[in-house]
Amino acid sequence: MREERVRVAESPARARAIMLDPRDTVAVLIEDAGAGARIVLQGDGSAGGPADLIAAEAIPYGHKVAVRPMEAGDPVIKYGEKMGIARARIDVGRHVHVHNVRGLNTEERSVSARG
């Protein structure tokens, strides 16, 4: 992906992101986004979903951006599944990663397994 990174670095004002499932609250950047960059959503989950958005901060490719707002304690949804819990409010366009998301604990997992 090296060539692509070079190209994106020259033009950080626009970056593409993939939304995997229509229920998701996050999308995965496939190009680096600079702060203020327009993020264009693509992928199977993007049709009829949230509109394109603006990166609130620089986010590297492979990392996640919030496409729907999440309050502290809300689930973070990727693949249509709970991949973690928001530790603070996360606005649309923010970087979603270890600084504002934690994994599910054993109890949350067993509740989910019992359906």
Binding site: G62, V76, Y79, K82, H97, V98, G103, L104
Partner: peptide, 18 residues
């Protein structure tokens, strides 16, 4: 994994079981 953008073990394993 974290440098690459994976945040939680749940997320990593989900990517595999998909």
């Amino acid at each position: 994994n974290i440098r690459g953008g994976l945040t939680t073990l749940d997320e990593k394993s989900l990517g595999c079981i998909k």
